[in-house]
Design a protein around this nucleic acid. Structure first.
Lengths: 233, 233
DNA sequence: AATAATAAATGTAATTATTACATTTATTAT
DNA sequence: ATAATAAATGTAATAATTACATTTATTATT
């Protein structure tokens, strides 16, 4: 079963060529609304249109690395939570070329991004309900990413990547309300969240949004588990 | 924001070329164990090795269509449940070429596949615990597909695509026991499954595996809903 | 110094879902 | 008539979710 690397064979020759791109669906949270980073294309094709930030994949990187490269170029950030969403491969999705795109969504701490760099690339944070029309199938990608984020948030403590290292319970409740697009009961929300045992309370209060102040919490990655099953047996 | 289709521009030119393949993780169920369809490569490269069934994607089809084309070629089946798993894009995953693969998993009714066609292509059904070593990263694909199947089965009534149109409750319980790799309590399993209200009972009994016979049920796609939420608000 | 204003923090009872567990039933073969 | 076999069923205990309103800590104002 040895594979001769340099051997000539016909298997890989004359394959129909398809370009492979990576597009990034970049979420951020400003303590009020869930936001998305998009940019105005400064070159052809589709110059002047709003677009997700993407790039063709390079020979020396996998899809995730390509996504992280893009993210670093635009925001200056490294070590970002980024996961594959799905591929977009409709034959006519890009009228300029036969090109499939691997959508990758990222959750970043919006206050940590390099504003100069973001500006330099013509990128802007939009609230999800004010998102402009995007090129190609990018609006669909955003919709799919949001669905995925909701799906994930239902069953696992996603979203901490959108918050600063220390955050308050009202803050994370607002985030979840944004993700689910509905109000949550604070007593039940806290009870549930704290029962999962992956939040560490500090004795420090954040008084930026109330006189009483809210205790700061920290995510305890050690204790993260996924606990809900329909069938336990 | 018009896009001039024939306009020459540099955006798509001289991109580093990456081949795009689709590999199919094909599950079947023979009323005892969960099985996987793999084939022995009859041509180079890697001739003689076991492999998932795949193909390079063509200009005139999207990834899902490519998967369905492959599936039809091998099994003769159409209208199969097939979903994207994820992409595999590690730089060195295929020593023969820079090639990314889009994994697609399919659930089929094993008794419906065209046995002659399957044989002709050198394909075999393997129980998951007897699966041979596969080429490249195909074992990882199988593992990921199984995880996905489990994940889906936890929250939604997946798996009916693996069963015949009419099936018994003991039959589907066995399937779920195979998916989860553990025994389930029949009273609780039935209670849960029936409470979801998407099974239609018939008055016909299947006596192929007991003297008493077990009632046949049918999946009611109209009533399929996904009902469990961590946060209901 | 007292009061008003504000958001944070908290508890409980009712409902629903999950779990653990053993017997009866329908049928066929002997 | 009996034995054998797998299918079908119920209930009580526990755990999770839901609905719902008041008190607390603090700051700003008078």
């Amino acid at each position: 079963m040895e594979f001769a690397k340099n051997q000539q064979n016909s298997w890989y020759e004359n394959k129909e060529q398809v370009l492979v791109a990576v597009d990034c669906i970049i979420f951020g949270f400003d303590n009020e609304t869930l936001k998305l980073l998009v940019f105005k294309r400064e070159i052809q094709p589709l110059k002047g249109s709003w677009s997700l930030i993407g790039s063709f994949i390079r020979q020396n990187e996998n899809a995730n690395q390509a996504g992280l490269r893009i993210l670093k170029d635009i925001t200056g950030l490294e070590n970002i939570f980024m996961e594959e969403l799905k591929t977009y491969s409709a034959v006519d999705r890009d009228p300029g070329a036969r090109c499939i795109s691997i959508g990758q969504y990222a959750l970043i701490r919006i206050d940590e991004n390099n504003k100069e760099l973001v500006n330099k690339h013509g990128a802007f944070w939009f609230s999800l309900d004010e998102l402009p029309e995007l090129v190609l199938d990018h609006n669909q990608m955003v919709k799919d990413a949001l669905d995925r984020l909701r799906e994930k948030a239902r069953f696992s403590p996603v979203g901490f990547e959108l918050l600063p290292k220390y955050f308050t319970l009202p803050q994370i409740q607002t985030l979840y309300e944004q993700i689910f697009q509905k109000r949550l009961d604070s007593r039940n929300f806290r009870k549930k969240l704290l029962s999962l045992n992956f939040l560490k309370k500090t004795e420090i209060k954040d008084k930026s949004s109330s006189k009483k102040g809210a205790y700061l919490y920290e995510f305890d990655y050690e204790k993260e588990t996924d606990q809900s099953f329909i069938f336990k047996g």
